[in-house]
């Protein structure tokens, strides 16, 4: 279990400041949400923190260690990312076995077969699925494989970028249940982006509301219903979400 601390993260693309001194901390074992307007920089935070983007300033500490000081192999063992689109994130001509074996091979980890089987069992897929290809899997099954790939190096932290946004609500329920169970069993720390406040409420202890590259407010889950948000945009987002859902108002 490791905490995540983001300090003064700033990045510009061209002349545009996309993240402006973003700081937040996530306790070890916590599920922390990121919500906000599309284009506000949520995915960019995850991409910077996992060093998919390099040209940013500030720092990210995982378990006290800077992601900048980790070599790529080490970083993969500490943090993994799951993306929104289960169709785009798996190579169409790679079998599930290839997808799961590759990180094990790169990291020189033994007992590959046993680990791959365990990863599939962990995400609730039959072990026979090792020999399937993406086109033979449903959207939910693909997202399970993407999660299995993220698990196989036994990381401490998972960055989840809209992991269920492309899925039907019935399939979303399965994946959210899976993520909750894995956090209980393995003590993962989650940093999770979603545009759906009901998903954030279901999964997260706290969340940050973002607008145009800034965190406008960090709120506990309860603030969604108890009306304690202060930032105008946080109030607007919560108000619209409640109206939309027609929750207790």
């Amino acid at each position: 279990m490791k905490p995540v601390v983001i300090q003064d993260m700033t990045i510009r693309f061209g002349g545009t400041t996309v993240l402006n001194d973003v700081s937040l901390s996530v306790a070890s074992g916590e599920c922390f949400g990121l919500v906000g307007e599309s284009g506000s920089g949520k995915s960019t935070i995850l991409r910077c923190a996992s060093m998919l983007y390099k040209g940013w300033t500030g720092d990210v500490l995982i378990g006290g260690q800077s992601v900048r000081s980790m070599d790529p192999m080490e970083r993969c063992r500490v943090l993994q990312m799951v993306f929104q689109d289960p169709y785009g994130s798996l190579h169409p001509r790679h079998s599930v076995r290839t997808v799961l074996a590759e990180p094990l091979r790169i990291h020189g980890i033994g007992e590959q077969e046993a680990r791959m089987r365990q990863a599939l069992i962990d995400v609730g897929l039959p072990v026979e699925f090792l020999d399937r290809y993406p086109h033979q899997l449903s959207g939910g099954q693909r997202q399970r494989v993407a999660i299995a790939r993220a698990l196989i190096l036994e990381p401490d932290v998972l960055f989840l970028d809209e992991p269920t946004s492309a899925l039907d609500v019935s399939v979303q329920a399965e994946i959210l249940n899976l993520l909750q169970r894995l956090r209980d069993e393995k003590g993962f720390t989650y940093l999770m982006v979603s545009h759906d406040l009901a998903v954030i409420d279901h999964m997260c202890d706290r969340f940050a509301v973002m607008k145009t590259g800034d965190i406008v407010e960090v709120l506990p889950r309860d603030a969604i219903l108890d009306g304690t948000a202060k930032a105008p945009y946080a109030q607007e987002l919560i108000g619209a979400s409640l109206t939309y859902e027609q929750a207790a108002m």
Partner: peptide, 18 residues
């Protein structure tokens, strides 16, 4: 479908799967 939908202020128990 209705039961699988997470709701604001819900129980946070595992969602019923279809």
């Amino acid at each position: 479908l209705l039961a699988a939908q997470p709701r604001i202020g819900g129980s946070r128990q595992p969602l019923p799967v279809l």
